[in-house]
Design a protein around this nucleic acid. Structure first.
Length: 408
DNA sequence: CCCCGCCCTGGAGC
DNA sequence: AGCTCCAGGGCGG
């Protein structure tokens, strides 16, 4: 029997209000994959969500797992079924992509209060802070320490593949949802993740999963959410006034998260921003630290290195600059600084002035041009893998190679 | 409070 | 080939 493919639906929007090509690649989520040319897919809330975008609209479709027909009659078909007419996919997209705020207006506000934002943001419009599942964000960003986006994506993919529930296939490629805390609490998880190449993060994940599933409870984590911006399906409530260090609920969430293994200030802020809806959270990593030095006069005197005090000072400055959505504005600048988007950078930071150094060697005077650090760095740009099949193969290769290495 | 060495891994540059 | 550095850090001394 020929199966009807799931239908595509249309959600009108402009690329300045939402740009999935930037939003899905800027390192806030690690699970989206290219399922075809200009098409992104991911398992989310028990379905495969696929997206395409053009200048007028976001196109989406949901593939639900085929209902398990217990009837012993005809040959069972594993093919995905069509979404019900009245399913909640549109509501899910609106929630997940945080589509409520007027992004053009926000960009204007941020630009008006900061010349640097005004300078760098125009080529990075349409970036939305996703409202991701808190637990998934927590584990994803535990994986992110001392790591790069492509490897983090591979690790998260492996977590889903080995511990997450299968949702359905597209072109014979399986899509798994993110594993629950229970699923990652088994006795062999750490050793297994070690074999899968997680390195020292294997222990962090195993410990954190046990703490959340057995000690604190998933409810504990989810209740750290911004009540104005809750998990999917929960009613909203007011979240109080913005203080210098952020709202009360944000401060509490940040502090509570620090009790988990592998969660420091930066990872806690990522979870707050991307998983708990606290838009004033400002994760300060090496990129943001570099931005703070280059564009906001950090790196000298009291704040000459990225200490805990400096970390807080940067967040406070950004909150003073941009207010309640400081983390959102900061993410735009962060993205503008990512290597993967380096072809879009503004004006190449001008042609960097060469420092001319005059020094004496024996009798002669030698004049040489010293290339500045920034110029040198730009040479070390690697291209992110373009097509995703390549990326998936990469992931498989990693896995088999490691297991093979073990055997020998 | 700050600083340092260490932790796993893979890719890139030299 | 072999080495260094770096990639969205965290932890313990």
């Amino acid at each position: 029997m020929a199966l009807r493919a799931a239908e595509w639906h249309k959600l009108p929007t402009s690329l300045t209000e939402l740009c999935i090509n930037t939003t899905l690649r800027c390192g806030q989520s690690f699970r989206w994959r290219k399922s075809a040319e200009d098409e992104w897919s991911m398992a989310l809330h028990g379905r495969i969500l696929s997206l395409k975008q053009d200048a007028e609209a976001l196109h989406y479709r949901a593939i639900h797992p085929s209902p398990v027909t217990k009837l012993p009659t005809p040959p069972p078909s594993n093919a995905p079924s069509v979404a019900a007419e009245d399913d909640d996919t549109l509501a899910l997209i609106t929630h997940y992509f945080n589509l409520e705020p007027n992004l053009g207006q926000l960009y204007e506000q941020w630009a008006a209060s900061d010349a640097n934002f005004k300078k760098r943001a125009p080529k990075f419009t349409g970036i939305r802070i996703l409202r991701q599942d808190a637990w998934e964000a927590l584990i994803g960003f535990i994986c992110s320490s001392n790591n790069n986006i492509s490897r983090i994506s591979g690790m998260v993919h492996n977590l889903c593949l080995h511990y997450g529930p299968l949702v359905a296939h597209i072109d014979d490629i399986p899509y798994h949802d993110f594993p629950t805390p229970d699923a990652l609490s088994g006795p062999d998880v750490e050793a297994h993740l070690m074999k899968l190449g997680f390195g020292y993060r294997a222990k962090y994940i195993a410990k954190t999963a046990r703490m959340v599933s057995q000690e604190k409870g998933l409810k504990w984590l989810e209740q750290l959410s911004n009540p104005e911006c809750p998990q999917f399906g929960v009613e909203t409530q007011s979240a109080g006034e913005l203080l210098e260090g952020g709202r009360e609920g944000y401060r509490t969430a940040h502090e509570e998260l620090l009790a988990l293994h592998g969660v420091g200030s930066k990872v806690a802020d990522c979870v707050c921003l991307f998983g708990l809806g606290w838009s004033e959270a400002v994760p300060v990593d090496t990129h943001v630290w570099q931005i703070a030095q280059r564009d906001y006069r950090f790196g000298k005197g009291k704040h000459s290195s990225l200490t805990a005090a400096t970390y807080v000072a940067i967040g406070n400055l950004f909150r003073k600059l941009w207010g309640k959505e400081a983390g959102w504005a900061h993410s735009v600048l962060f993205t503008a600084d990512l290597k993967a988007f380096s072809e879009r950078v503004v004006a190449k930071t001008e042609i960097k002035e060469e420092e001319v150094v005059v020094k004496k060697e024996g009798d002669e005077t030698v004049v040489e041009n010293v290339v500045k650090k920034e110029t040198v760095k730009r040479k070390r740009i690697k291209k992110e893998p373009e097509d995703d099949e390549h990326q998936i193969l990469q992931i498989m290769k990693e896995t088999t190679r490691r297991t093979r290495r073990r055997r020998s």
